[in-house]
Simulated assay, not measured.
Amino acid sequence: MTLLSRTLRRSKGRIVKVRNYIAQAGPVLVILAFMPLAGCTSLAVGAGATAGVAALQERGFGGAVSDTAITAEIWQKFLTEDENLFRRIEIEVVEGEVLLAGTVENTDSELKAVELAWQVNGVNRVINEINVGQGSSLMDSASDLLITTRIKTALMFDTDVYAINYSVETINGTVHIMGIAQSEHERNLVISHARATSYVRRVVSHVRLKDDPQRQRT
């Protein structure tokens, strides 16, 4: 599948993304509910793998499930309020901290998106990286997807980076990174990988250190 095709599928199929978030929010419940009826081994393995990955993250299984539920609820609020919010804004959540990144048509839409995010239980901070202006072109979106993929790949193959703890969003060449670093050295490595990636215009880091006192209070 070409980058262009993936971008089209991404913009037109955002509802699938919401459903996936909802499904991930309760993988154990899905297993318990459907295994006795369906006896589907592949379902159990898939849900179990999701749970296993979540458990390995620094935020833990409970934190991952909570963040996924927050993400799904914000998506739902965006979709109910305004389809443009749903289509144009990307959401990342780490330990109740919500990153909103994208481009909307006017300031009212920007403020509404922030307001809706704050309405969700469990949100303790909203990071507003929303721009006001024209949305990305198809080629820009394809380029952003390529940038994100390259950065994630670089993190995955760096043995000094615990890549599972990071999420990456790219909007118009600006890379937003969220996650929990084991050390200042690891955080610097993650940022360096992003900056070294072709076509990146700017890198914005929202990465916290594992022992950050602010994190311990959340």
Results as ranks from 00 to 15, higher is better:
Met1Thr: 10
Thr2Cys: 10
Thr7Val: 13
Thr7Gln: 09
Leu8Ala: 05
Arg9Cys: 09
Arg10Gln: 11
Lys12Trp: 11
Lys12Gln: 12
Arg14Gly: 08
Arg14Asn: 08
Arg14Leu: 06
Ile15Arg: 13
Val16Gln: 08
Lys17Val: 09
Val18Lys: 06
Val18Asn: 09
Ile22Asn: 12
Ala25Tyr: 03
Val28Leu: 14
Leu32Gly: 09
Met35Phe: 13
Leu37His: 11
Cys40Ser: 13
Ser42Glu: 14
Val45Asn: 11
Ala47Asn: 10
Ala49Leu: 15
Thr50Leu: 14
Ala51Tyr: 10
Ala51Pro: 00
Val53Glu: 15
Ala55Met: 14
Leu56Ala: 15
Gln57Asp: 14
Gly60Ala: 09
Ala64Asn: 07
Ser66Ile: 13
Thr68Lys: 03
Ala69Glu: 06
Ala69Asp: 09
Thr71Cys: 07
Thr71Trp: 04
Thr71His: 02
Ala72Asn: 05
Ile74Val: 14
Ile74Phe: 02
Trp75Leu: 14
Trp75Ala: 14
Lys77Tyr: 09
Lys77Arg: 15
Lys77Ala: 11
Phe78Val: 08
Leu79Gly: 14
Glu81Asn: 10
Glu81Trp: 07
Arg87Ala: 12
Arg88Pro: 00
Ile89Asp: 01
Ile91Asn: 00
Glu92Cys: 07
Val93His: 02
Glu95Leu: 07
Glu95Val: 04
Val98Leu: 01
Leu100Arg: 06
Ala101Val: 10
Glu105Val: 08
Glu105Gly: 01
Asn106Met: 03
Asp108Val: 08
Glu110Trp: 07
Glu110Lys: 15
Glu110Met: 12
Leu111Glu: 02
Lys112Tyr: 04
Ala113Pro: 01
Ala113Ile: 12
Val114Gln: 05
Val114Arg: 12
Val120Lys: 03
Val120Arg: 09
Gly122Ile: 01
Val123Trp: 12
Asn124Gln: 12
Arg125Glu: 10
Arg125Ala: 11
Ile127Lys: 07
Asn128Pro: 07
Gln134Leu: 15
Leu138Ser: 06
Met139Arg: 02
Ala142Leu: 04
Ala142Glu: 03
Ala142Arg: 02
Ser143Trp: 05
Thr149Trp: 00
Thr149Asp: 11
Thr149Met: 07
Thr149Ile: 00
Lys152Thr: 03
Leu155Trp: 00
Asp160Thr: 06
Val168Asp: 09
Thr170Met: 01
Ile171Tyr: 03
Ile171Val: 13
Ile177Phe: 02
Ala181Lys: 01
Gln182Thr: 10
Ser183Lys: 05
Ser183Leu: 00
Glu184Pro: 15
His185Gly: 12
Arg187Asp: 03
Leu189Val: 07
Leu189Asp: 05
Leu189Asn: 08
Ile191Thr: 13
Ile191Glu: 02
Arg195Ala: 10
Arg195Met: 08
Thr197Lys: 05
His206Ala: 00
Leu209Thr: 01
Lys210Ile: 12
Asp211Trp: 06
Pro213Lys: 12
Gln216His: 14
Gln216Ser: 13
Arg217Gln: 12
